[in-house]
Amino acid sequence: MCTTCGCGSDEVKIEGADPHEHVHADGTRHSHSHEHAYVPAHSHAPGTSAKRMVQIEQDILAKNNAYAAQNRAFFAGRRVFTLNLVSSPGSGKTTLLCKTIEQLRGNQHVTVIEGDQQTSQDAERIRATGAPAIQINTGKGCHLDAHMIGHALEQLDLPERSLLMIENVGNLVCPAAFDLGEAHKVVILSVTEGEDKPIKYPDMFRAASLMLLNKCDLLPHLDFSVKEAIAYARRVNPAIEIIEVSAKTGAGMAEWLDWIERKSSGE
């Protein structure tokens, strides 16, 4: 747990981070003065009993959003392009990341933050490609939040104009609500899941700018209708972009890399 600020769950572990250490490299970025989220509350005069009412009127996500804004400012300062990859468990996020790193080798520096409840297996898979990666274990937590990312950033040395990919915990619900400071959320749907995931988990597909339809190499063996999946995704988010890929065969990777290139150059 983050002892200085008391935020986060007891079980969150960030590789390399000392939970008591809060001296941040650039001082201002993640200062733990949580003042930013405070709105002065006005309290009613105490009544006859010892009980009284206190008005709060604060958004439950206000703190997370304040941290996300700090992260976003940090990324902007270094011109780091950050993507937040979200999906159900097992859709192929890590495989896709490894493939992306391989194909960008020599052209674009990629750093990865991995979120899983337990183990550092995914970070190890990324490091095996030669890219720096840091694992966040959320314990019982089912998503990453902006505060955890702020601490992970203390452990990383992100080069100017590099790419940061955050693999969120496999969960199509909660990560939708938690802004991490990313430029875009990218939702990965694999064809071994149902076509109707977008309408079952609309918040996530609304929050995403791009949907990667992964495992397309398996389509010949399945009844999955790509057309239907796309129609459902567009129903909940008319503006969503969609790319069909296979992290296994590499099909569609060029289009995905082109999307990254376009978006990171500020289109």
Binding site: Q58, I60, A62, G141
Partner: peptide
């Protein structure tokens, strides 16, 4: 869990 944790944080700040 964490929306509930967010609620608790706001309560503790207010306290």
């Amino acid at each position: 869990m964490s929306l509930a944790e967010g609620v608790l944080q706001l309560i503790e700040d207010a306290a």
